[in-house]
Design a protein around this nucleic acid. Structure first.
Lengths: 100, 100
DNA sequence: TTCATATTTCTGCAAATATGGAAATATGAG
DNA sequence: CTCATATTTCCATATTTGCAGAAATATGAA
């Protein structure tokens, strides 16, 4: 997942899908927004899908992509655990500033 | 940074350095632990260093690498912000279970 | 059926990355 | 100085990745 998000176009796609969450976006909208050629975009979406970072469903002619929040949650939990729980390298308070 | 951590050997290096935090480890110790040829390991460490994920200091003949917790904190904050703050895709409570 | 639109697959190529053996460099001990 | 150890750099190779044009496929409307 780190690898899949480790490229600028794909990170931008994820950010875009998050801003559109939970409705998500159809491919054409992503294409218009990010200005990526269709075949290139398709490859990136495929990569994100294969890493389970996005979900797809068909709406007649369109394919609607949504961010897979479950996966992002796991990723965040993993990083949090490695840094804050398993090892005490970081203090939780330094991450989550709003906490009551 | 996602890209730098998106490869198995480098993620393992980061995990190892976190378990050894804050002392860190010298290259030889990492090599023994992960069983990676010296030149390959050197390349990976260089990549992590160039992404500012690790810090190095020389101890006579040895080079001691430590995880850069500042960078990890920023990474975690970024991901947290994208998922929980900027967009309400994830609930903070789902990440930070311990919060009082 | 034909047509138009949406999206993917095919194909190839260029660039980046991973890998590791061998040689080079750095440091300190004797 | 020489020697031994630690680590990097040099070099070549293999693999992966990014990119995008063109063709193929999917869907639905007329």
């Amino acid at each position: 997942m780190f690898s899949a998000m480790g490229t600028e176009p794909r990170l931008r796609i994820m950010q875009l899908l998050l801003t559109a969450h939970p409705e998500g976006l159809v491919v054409g909208d992503i294409q218009d927004e990010l200005d990526i050629p269709n075949s290139t975009l398709s490859h990136h979406l495929d990569k994100l899908k294969s890493e389970d970072l996005v979900r797809v469903r068909r709406e007649s002619t369109f394919l609607r992509y949504t961010a897979n929040t479950q996966a992002l949650q796991e990723l965040l939990q993993f990083l949090y655990a490695e840094c804050c729980t398993r090892n005490k390298a970081l203090k939780p308070r330094d991450i989550v500033t709003l906490c009551r």
